[in-house]
Design a protein around this nucleic acid. Structure first.
Lengths: 207, 207
DNA sequence: AACTGTGAAACCATTCACAGCA
DNA sequence: TGCTGTGAATGGTTTCACAGTT
């Protein structure tokens, strides 16, 4: 498993391979081919094999991949063989919905802290909304791995600063701003309207 | 404006350039350089110029770009110089939050229909939840441009079929499945847990 | 026969370097 | 001088083609 010559898209695809492997297991299947994975995820079989080849030889020539085995290998690679503790900041509509997003828990991401500047004490599942000013203190107790920022744009940077100061090593940012974080903190920005605008572009093309 | 030699990432970046141009306008600025756009969006100045060069010559050598003008050019390109009518299917946590996602309306995407199989008649803003079985009929009246699918995985394909049959030309799909739609329908899949897993990969690397 | 793993080729995107212009 | 626009160079990703294995 090499350092970092691996394309980011490969990691994203591994995540989706992992998802379809789970589904195949649920259907009671044992073996799957690169072609099988490919049709279920919408990529080419070559791509599937190349992606996996970055990390090792998981298949058997002439046969395919053992689903259980491949699944556990991919889990090890993308780090979902353990649980990660997630802290979320911002409990507006989107933030509130992410707290209980079933896909997160199912894949090992445990909501461990929810923060805002208002509605302190409100209950979401097992969790109570805490004031963002207590983030660092609570982080010390709980040990968050990963932060999700869903606050309005103008507060996003200061929330990021608090998260970084509290030792969080990766941030998923839904606020439409570039955040300034140290090199060693991974950050991934998601701007939902960007996706709609991409579709808009293709629609406009056809008119 | 050429046909389709343009990278998808370029379109995504145009969308974010557009966002920072609006912000600069709000701050009362008139002129911006590729370097200015670059620092605000986290790409290289060369990249900015290359992206814009796909579509025309919008700048003035030695000076930079007129913000107002560039903004309106980008709007034309990505189709946000008009409004698009959006239909959303699935009013679970995530779906419900998207109905009122401020970023959508701000950028010309108008929620025009919301559908589910339960809680019919519930009110979200100005809209009432309609049964998905009435989608085609309502689509005829309203004329949806774009569909958002936020239903559980197992129902996503049939919802997509309904949308396609009703003349929708682009779909944003949050369900973690590859949907089968005709060539001429644009589809963009977003699997939120994929983003977390990407971060998980980088965290796991460092341990 | 069916399928993986992998170099080599093809393709695509980004960065460089500089000419052209205000 | 400062900045855009762009061909050329570089770097990266995907596809091809086939050797290797069961």
């Amino acid at each position: 498993m090499k350092k970092s010559k691996i394309p980011e898209v490969t990691i994203m695809r591994l995540s989706s391979y992992s998802r379809v492997l789970n589904e195949a297991l649920d259907r009671g299947e044992k073996i799957i081919s690169s072609k099988g994975i490919a049709t279920l995820t919408g990529v080419s079989p070559d791509q599937v094999r190349k992606d996996l080849a970055y990390f090792g030889e998981f298949g058997v020539r002439g046969i395919g991949y053992n689903i259980e085995g491949l699944k556990s290998n991919i889990s090890k690679i993308i780090g979902t063989n353990r649980n990660w503790k997630v802290a979320i900041a911002g409990l507006g509509h989107l933030g509130g919905s992410l707290v209980s997003y079933p896909g997160f828990l199912r894949r090992g991401f445990i909501m461990a802290g929810i923060f805002d500047v208002k509605n302190i004490g409100d209950k979401y599942g097992e969790l109570y909304v805490e004031h963002i000013d207590n983030f660092e203190k609570i982080a010390k107790e709980v040990g968050f791995d990963l932060g999700i920022i869903v606050v309005p744009r103008e507060f996003a940077q200061s929330v990021a600063d608090i998260m970084v100061k509290s030792g969080i090593k990766a941030i998923l940012n839904f606020a439409p701003v570039m955040l300034d974080v140290p090199e060693n903190v991974e950050i991934k920005n998601i701007d939902l309207s960007m996706f709609l605008e991409m579709l808009s572009y293709y629609m406009a093309l056809k008119m």
